[in-house]
Design a protein around this nucleic acid. Structure first.
Length: 437
RNA sequence: GGAACGGUGGCAGAGCGGCCUAAUGCACUUGUCUUGAAAACAAGAGACCUUACGGGGUCCGGGGGUUCAAAUCCCUCCCGUUCCGCCA
């Protein structure tokens, strides 16, 4: 959510910033919110005055009854009762306006960072780092690398999606043998690589409706999540969901910031609307493994953390011997909650496409307002300052297993058809150095 | 799943229709005293909304109800502890 107070005072600037997203409906929504906010404050004032009067009268009644003056007490009670009915009416009005305003606010997207490039769609996302490719560029890959991973996986007996489909449904995957080992090795490697700065969390994989609303998946994207209706729980689509909500409703000490967390988790996505797309191999599936990194920070700390998180992902991808580039998401392609966002893409020579393997994003205080995560500031002497401030949140995938797994198969396939395991994964591979060797 | 008991300020913990504008203790902050500290004494201290910056309102797990008035009574949901059952 964006800040209503900001909206009140700088509506024009916010409208202009949101216009860059290319969504024309924002102007009228903001106009409505500003008007509802005005009404709400007026009604709140009326309600509070009436309540103050009731409190006063009730105290009077108490005193009169103690004094034994029953008759006068009853007169005052009658007055108070009438006021109570009035408050009830005002409250209903207040409730209606407040709900209306909240609903509108939930749909107004975050303001893009000033440095976000203008653009209409993903076609306009500029490459900001790389591409890092072999000599000869996209033509520099050898013929033995130009085999799609689903063919490699099947030939080596380490991918068995047919059986995954049999026991679950289409778009579920299953790795076996050394393939399964390598999938797990990737998770361990990603966790170990970030353990210097991030606390490891093993969060719940099912969360409440309230939790899924805090991070913005609900109410708008309910169709994309698996629901367990009987118990009113949802399967998490990413560890971002439980990690962001860990401190919801809490007030942190500024000394605790930046607070950095990482978690391995399974991720469940219904992929509604994606049926039939990327159905082969590992490019898109209903359940996959991912290691997520996330930070709660002050506004000042956020830009530096963003850069750090991106370079962590880049280093990891490079260390696996993969070819990558970093693109910045342009204003028209930016997700609803995002303030600024970068994708790390890996080139998969077998299926001949750039695969999005990570998205690192800065949400400013947009998520924190929804999740109510704040911190207390201190002054120059280190003493707590009155009041609280919302944190900024950042997160990104440190490593999403399936697409990296696929890129490894294709990139490191050797002339004899086997696949060389990247050196950094060897400590987790139980002695396996080659898949299918 | 069954039963019992709980959920109150940073923590502990009283209150069980009206001086609750929430006792008391610990921790905290600021003063006084002191060379400094400790101790003692005194005062203060939360969050949120709103404001004509004087204030006003809300917050005792959540929601609803009874009442002139609810931390306190009623309903309901959530969470916790203990015991039983079941289980990895």
């Amino acid at each position: 959510m964006i800040d209503v107070r900001q909206l009140r005072e700088h509506a024009d600037e916010i409208c202009a910033a949101l216009a860059r997203r290319g969504d024309a409906s924002c102007d009228s929504q903001i106009e409505q919110v500003v008007e509802l906010d005005r009404q709400l404050r007026e009604i709140t004032a009326r309600r509070d005055d009436a309540r103050a009067r009731i409190n006063e009268l009730s105290r009077e009644v108490g005193q009169l009854r103690r004094d034994g003056n029953v008759e006068q007490a009853e007169t005052v009670q009658a007055e108070s009762r009438a006021l109570g009915e009035e408050v009830g009416r005002i409250e209903n009005e207040h409730e209606a306006i407040s709900a209306n305003m909240h609903e509108l606010l939930l749909h107004i997207p975050n303001v893009p960072h000033p440095d976000v490039p203008n653009g209409a769609s993903d076609a306009d996302n500029p490459v900001v780092t790389g591409p890092f490719l072999p000599e000869g560029g996209l033509d520099g890959f050898a013929d033995h690398q130009r085999v799609p991973h689903w063919e490699i996986g099947e030939a080596l007996g380490i991918l068995d999606n047919e059986r995954a489909t049999k026991i679950a449904a289409s778009m579920f995957t299953m790795q076996r043998g050394a393939g399964a080992t390598m999938a797990r090795a990737l998770c361990q490697y990603a966790l170990d690589s970030n353990a210097d700065a991030f606390e490891e969390i093993r969060p719940p994989s099912l969360v409440s409706t309230a939790t899924l609303t805090s991070t913005g998946q609900l109410p708008k994207f309910a169709d994309d999540a698996y629901a367990i209706e009987r118990d009113d729980l949802w399967c998490i689509p990413t560890a971002e969901v439980p990690l962001t909500s860990m401190y919801s409703g809490e007030i942190l000490d500024v000394a605790e910031l930046p607070a950095r967390f990482m978690a391995y988790s399974p991720c469940f996505r219904r992929e509604a609307g994606s049926a039939g797309r990327d159905t082969r191999g590992m490019l898109r599936s209903h359940e996959f493994d991912k290691v997520e990194i996330l930070a709660l920070a002050t506004a000042d700390q956020a830009p530096e953390l963003l850069v750090d998180m991106i370079s962590r992902v880049e280093r990891m991808i490079s260390s696996l011997g993969l070819h990558h580039r970093v693109i910045e998401i342009c204003s028209g392609d930016l997700g609803q909650s995002h303030h600024r966002s970068f994708d790390i893409e890996v080139y998969a020579p077998g299926c001949e496409q750039w695969l999005e393997v990570s998205s690192v994003s800065w949400f400013s205080d947009y998520q924190a307002r929804r999740a109510d995560i704040r911190y207390r500031q201190v002054d120059a002497d280190g003493k707590p300052v009155k009041g609280t401030v919302l944190v900024h949140t950042l997160n990104g995938s440190a490593l999403a297993v399936p697409r990296v797994w696929a890129a490894i198969l294709e990139t490191h396939r050797q002339e004899d058809g086997s696949v060389k395991v990247p050196e950094v994964l060897l400590p987790y591979m139980r002695g396996i150095t080659v898949l299918g060797g």
